[in-house]
């Protein structure tokens, strides 16, 4: 599969603080990619670097094989971007927003935009400030899609939506993925919100990529091990340890390998997996010993 997004040693520094550094990603075209991490982890910085709203302090970005999106209007014409909280002009009518979109974007599809708005039951004459949060999100999505992008980037698209509006938003988004074969990158601080829709995952914490890959492959490579807490094993595959008095749970990257004798392995869920990497990033463990994780 060809790559939609490639970053090499990408970094962004604000004064002395690195908001993002050493970011190497290769994200496949056609995937629905969840970018997950706590608030302040560097998610928005990464998204803004991808769409050229910020210039990198280090490294490079390329979209669909074209380098430097910020410098290339052609690359940016293929990208739809919706910033956090769906910023749209609140005093504009929906029809005026569409007019604005048509004037600013060469590949604008007015029919598509109007049809989408109509299907949602939103009156074109309505001022956007009077729409519900869910409707505003849908209008912002319709505007981004009317550009006919190959890549759609959404920053926290569902965080502010109630459960029903969230579901409706993701329904429209997934149907569009089927119709257009679009690549979608969407961020959230809550992976559970995106679990059903994503097939690719990027976990960011503390300005660094902690984990990236195909969801199914990642779930296949990790196990939760349970065993006695004395003589805890250690090694490069150990991601996070939860220790009780007599037993411990370990999230480990051991694939199908048999766990150590006396330890039981079970499959891991997506939320558990993300949490393990976020905790590892927050409390880095001391240098691993040579003890082996699997026998």
């Amino acid at each position: 599969m060809s790559a939609a997004i490639v970053t090499r040693e990408l970094g962004k520094r604000y004064r002395s603080r690195w908001a993002l550094r050493d970011c190497d990603l290769e994200l496949p075209a056609g995937a629905v990619i969840a970018l997950v991490g706590p608030n302040g982890a560097g998610k928005t910085t990464l998204l803004q670097l991808l769409v050229g709203l910020q210039q990198p302090s280090a490294g490079s970005v390329s979209l669909f094989g074209r380098p430097e999106p910020g410098g290339s209007a052609q690359a940016l014409a293929q990208v739809g971007y919706v910033a956090q909280d769906h910023p749209i002009y609140r005093r504009f009518r929906v029809s005026e927003l569409l007019h604005l979109g048509r004037s600013l974007n060469p590949g604008w599809d007015q029919d598509l935009a109007e049809r989408r708005i109509e299907e949602l039951g939103i009156p074109l004459r309505q001022r956007t400030g009077r729409l519900s949060g869910g409707q505003q999100a849908q209008v912002a999505l319709a505007l981004a899609l009317a550009k006919r992008p190959k890549l759609l980037i959404l920053d926290e698209p569902v965080a502010s939506l109630d459960p029903l509006a969230r579901r409706e938003f993701l329904q429209v988004l997934m149907a569009t993925v089927v119709d257009e074969g679009l690549t979608v990158l969407l961020s959230s601080h809550n992976v559970a919100e995106l679990e059903r829709v994503c097939d690719h995952l990027v976990v960011v914490a503390d300005g660094r990529v902690q984990l990236a890959g195909d969801v199914e492959a990642l779930l296949g490579e990790h196990r939760v091990l349970t065993g006695p807490s004395g003589g805890l094993p250690d090694g490069p595959g150990m991601i996070h340890v939860d220790r009780a008095d007599r037993h411990a749970h370990i999230v480990a990257r051991i694939g199908d390998a048999e766990p150590m004798p006396g330890w039981a392995a079970r499959p891991i869920g997506l939320e558990e997996l993300v949490l393990a990497y976020l905790r590892q990033a927050r409390d880095p463990r001391p240098v691993p010993s040579e003890l082996e994780l699997s026998k």
Partner: peptide, 15 residues
């Protein structure tokens, strides 16, 4: 159809 199921459930088409 895959599109119908995706729209019913709001899930990834690959699923």
């Amino acid at each position: 159809l895959i599109r119908e199921a995706v729209e019913q459930l709001a899930i990834n088409p690959n699923t």
